[in-house]
Simulated assay, not measured.
Amino acid sequence: MDTRAVRYFRWLLFWQQQGRCCYCREHVVLTYRPYDAARPYAATLEHLQRRADGGTGHPANLAMACKHCNNTRGERDWLSYASWRQSN
């Protein structure tokens, strides 16, 4: 996916999810500055079905997650990880 498409989907998902992470439901920051993109609350595109498990970059398989949740999900499926994050 090219840079313009990534920015568009990040903005679209930010709007659809009301600026909240799909896992922990905390507010995220939509930014394109490299310094802010490294912060734990920065908005990232998340593949609900991991690409390692056959997931694609299709828009139906994308959600917006904070960088912390995106990095800590690991091999868990998205639904069980979301349930776990929201219960903590």
Results as ranks from 00 to 15, higher is better:
residue 1 M to S: 14
residue 1 M to A: 09
residue 1 M to K: 11
residue 1 M to R: 04
residue 2 D to M: 04
residue 3 T to Q: 15
residue 3 T to S: 13
residue 3 T to F: 06
residue 4 R to T: 05
residue 4 R to Y: 04
residue 6 V to E: 12
residue 7 R to L: 06
residue 8 Y to T: 06
residue 9 F to S: 09
residue 11 W to Q: 14
residue 12 L to Q: 09
residue 12 L to F: 05
residue 13 L to R: 04
residue 13 L to F: 01
residue 16 Q to A: 13
residue 17 Q to E: 06
residue 17 Q to V: 03
residue 17 Q to N: 02
residue 17 Q to M: 02
residue 18 Q to I: 11
residue 19 G to I: 08
residue 19 G to P: 00
residue 20 R to D: 13
residue 22 C to Y: 08
residue 23 Y to C: 04
residue 25 R to S: 13
residue 26 E to H: 08
residue 26 E to F: 06
residue 27 H to E: 14
residue 29 V to Q: 12
residue 29 V to W: 09
residue 30 L to D: 09
residue 30 L to K: 08
residue 30 L to Q: 15
residue 31 T to Q: 00
residue 34 P to V: 05
residue 34 P to W: 07
residue 37 A to H: 10
residue 38 A to Y: 06
residue 39 R to K: 14
residue 40 P to V: 05
residue 40 P to G: 08
residue 44 T to I: 03
residue 45 L to C: 01
residue 45 L to Y: 08
residue 46 E to S: 00
residue 46 E to L: 05
residue 47 H to G: 01
residue 49 Q to A: 11
residue 49 Q to V: 11
residue 49 Q to W: 10
residue 50 R to Y: 07
residue 50 R to L: 15
residue 51 R to W: 04
residue 53 D to F: 10
residue 53 D to W: 07
residue 53 D to Q: 03
residue 54 G to F: 09
residue 54 G to C: 02
residue 55 G to E: 02
residue 55 G to Q: 00
residue 55 G to P: 08
residue 55 G to N: 03
residue 56 T to S: 13
residue 56 T to W: 10
residue 57 G to A: 01
residue 57 G to E: 11
residue 58 H to S: 15
residue 59 P to A: 08
residue 59 P to K: 03
residue 61 N to V: 02
residue 63 A to D: 03
residue 63 A to N: 02
residue 63 A to P: 01
residue 64 M to N: 12
residue 67 K to D: 09
residue 68 H to P: 11
residue 69 C to L: 02
residue 73 R to G: 00
residue 73 R to A: 11
residue 74 G to R: 02
residue 74 G to A: 09
residue 74 G to E: 05
residue 74 G to V: 02
residue 74 G to Y: 00
residue 75 E to G: 12
residue 76 R to F: 00
residue 77 D to C: 03
residue 77 D to Y: 02
residue 78 W to P: 06
residue 79 L to S: 14
residue 79 L to V: 03
residue 79 L to D: 12
residue 79 L to R: 13
residue 80 S to Q: 07
residue 82 A to R: 10
residue 83 S to T: 15
residue 83 S to V: 14
residue 84 W to H: 15
residue 85 R to V: 02
residue 87 S to F: 11
residue 88 N to G: 06
